[in-house]
Write a protein that binds this DNA or RNA. Sequence first.
DNA 1: GATGAATGAGGGTTCATTCAT
DNA 2: TATGAATGAACCCTCATTCAT
Lengths: 230, 230, 230, 230
Amino acid sequence: MDVLAASALKKVRVSTLLTREKIISAATYEFAEKGYDGARMDEIALRAGIQKNVLYYYFKSKDGLYTEVLISTYELIRFSQAESKINFDDPVEGMRKLVYSIGKIWFEHPEFLRLLQSENILRGRHIKASRKIPDLYSPLMDSIKKLLRNGVDKKVFRKEVDPIDLYISITSLSAHYVSHQHTFEGIFKSKLMTSPRIRKRLTHCAEMVVRYLLVSNDSLNKGAKHVSSK
Amino acid sequence: MDVLAASALKKVRVSTLLTREKIISAATYEFAEKGYDGARMDEIALRAGIQKNVLYYYFKSKDGLYTEVLISTYELIRFSQAESKINFDDPVEGMRKLVYSIGKIWFEHPEFLRLLQSENILRGRHIKASRKIPDLYSPLMDSIKKLLRNGVDKKVFRKEVDPIDLYISITSLSAHYVSHQHTFEGIFKSKLMTSPRIRKRLTHCAEMVVRYLLVSNDSLNKGAKHVSSK
Amino acid sequence: MDVLAASALKKVRVSTLLTREKIISAATYEFAEKGYDGARMDEIALRAGIQKNVLYYYFKSKDGLYTEVLISTYELIRFSQAESKINFDDPVEGMRKLVYSIGKIWFEHPEFLRLLQSENILRGRHIKASRKIPDLYSPLMDSIKKLLRNGVDKKVFRKEVDPIDLYISITSLSAHYVSHQHTFEGIFKSKLMTSPRIRKRLTHCAEMVVRYLLVSNDSLNKGAKHVSSK
Amino acid sequence: MDVLAASALKKVRVSTLLTREKIISAATYEFAEKGYDGARMDEIALRAGIQKNVLYYYFKSKDGLYTEVLISTYELIRFSQAESKINFDDPVEGMRKLVYSIGKIWFEHPEFLRLLQSENILRGRHIKASRKIPDLYSPLMDSIKKLLRNGVDKKVFRKEVDPIDLYISITSLSAHYVSHQHTFEGIFKSKLMTSPRIRKRLTHCAEMVVRYLLVSNDSLNKGAKHVSSK
DNA sequence: GATGAATGAGGGTTCATTCAT
DNA sequence: TATGAATGAACCCTCATTCAT
């Protein structure tokens, strides 16, 4: 939309902007589908309906294009995460909703995960080189912190919870399920991506998070801080 | 070891067996390092100290080699998981230990995760084609079930827990942390792989799992089965 | 020639067209020289004075290139065959001339035969896959039919002659001599490709065809239709 | 048979001889099927049921093996040609029978032709290097000469016929039909290898040869020795 | 900005042949 | 003799990238 607004001012650049979007879109698909190394510039150009050469005109290199794809993907994730309306006055239900909503994003957009996975195999090569990406701090973090604070205030959540670990756990519980579906299905020989199974999984994730936060069973765990490592 | 024993009897086959091992070892490294598409057969041959075409003599193709690498990796994971001695008489501590032990495997062998990730990007192409891999059912599952049963018998664990979801969650909480370390570090701008941070994470994982299982806070969650989807 | 005319208008495409021609020419030589399997893409690129991968840019694969070479060869053969001016009013002399002319093509362009031979060893793999080649119907066939008709009208040729068998025979008598020159020379220990020997052969071929067609000795062969097979 | 006789004397070598036969047989198939360059030593070893290495033990190289295959093929052809019983007292019928019999060999053993073709593409490389092959002079030549002589004596055949050209023509008329069946079928879009079509062809060949030889139409062709070349 | 042609390096795979046993 | 492992050269083909227009 900003794109259209900007283009209203400079009519000349419309096609350029559209071309850029088309490339990003095609590239996102290709990179998500095959990973960085498996993706082909030819395929991206073909899908975008442009000449291979234009890719280089706009993005300079495969790495450059991949970086832009990552940025736009992060933006989409952030945008998606910001969308779900959380009721912060009911921390328990709010948290459940939060976990559920985040999980849904992965199930609906597994291509996001594949992009992140690919980038992690490359050891964060592009993310670390880019100056823009680190700013993409997630608003989700704010939601988590707010819910956590409200829960503690209302004496339903424990105090000692690290929001970063919680953030990672919330993401992990659903994301890993999605991103490793094929190997898990290989092991368990059962379909993991049917609609009911997905709902079951999301409920499980929400339950796990909420039960982790609740104060009620604190008494049982006194003294148990660290497990002795082998 | 059996290899060496056998070779003591028939000197002939030593080199063959060693060659195979050398290739698998070099290939595991290369595939884990670069992913399937990024890995180079030349590099594997070089690392294994053999001619490139010997790879094809033993494994027929890159796909074939990758499949064998996956199999051997699964075996190593299974072997690692089986190693940790769990005290089944104390379900709570046993489960804590279990989660911790499994987590440690990922931290100590992140290459396993990279292999699985790469395979998942390929949509389980090799795992599904292989007839051997699905049999690599994890003994870890048995440990989880046994602990769960004992916990229920002793009235400390809840009854309604699905062992498969639990298995996936236990794996997810630590594995996703490891496999997405680079993008997480990009977002949080903090080191996630230092020794104390890792211990903290593992403790968090164990806590999360145990608190999910305990009966004590059941009363608080009555009626909350499913979260209404958006 | 049209190529040059066209290029006069649009300078841009000259190199492209030339490149294509250069490749076809180099490939024709290489394939004729060594057969399909013996031919080397490297060698073709070298001979055409281009990069190896340009071959693939233009023709996609070795098979694709070979198919185009076959097409262009068929066109050249057809063109060569169409060139000789036959006197249709004198069927006997016309036929003699026809046989002689066709034969000359093989002697002058043995590479055509080697290409066809190679394709036949491959069981017509490319010819059958190509949609263009079957249209390359020979105008030679028309000449044969016309001569045959005129000869019958003038009562010098017999009526019962099958033009397809005649076509094949005319081709065989000279083509097989050329294409099997090396094994024949091995057997007969005599030079078969000297100028006088070639002329002698071509005369022989023409004689054979004409005598086959003449009505005069029909009486002698009455009743002899089929030979009893062994 | 000689093989068995020889082996009776030296029992030890039976397996060797059998191995040799097996290899020749497998190699003949492979070379005829794919041509020299298309043939694979692995495939031959596999088909012969032996180790790849043994091929080299027996035949030293691919070229060596191919040469032996050619020799044995020539012997088979000669043997086949010698088999048909010709009635020399009736030159016309005898010649018809001869042409027919020779043709049948090609139809029944197209692999012979493919071997010869392949060798001709290689410009008789092996045949010329071998000291044995030139001796394989065909007894067929003797039959042709004898028939020719008898025909002349009986005043049914012309005198001026060159037996070598006749030999080549007899072979060409049927051999070329077989060896170029795929390209001919591509051009004519009709099946050439059905049983009735083959019989028709063979009859055509015999007719052509006989009519060429008969004296009866000599008067019509007086003075026509050479066609003026273009 | 956009196009088609070209580049150079290398990527997986194959093959005839030989070595060690 | 026969076997399995290994060799080295090359083969077809692909890919990211750039040039000339």
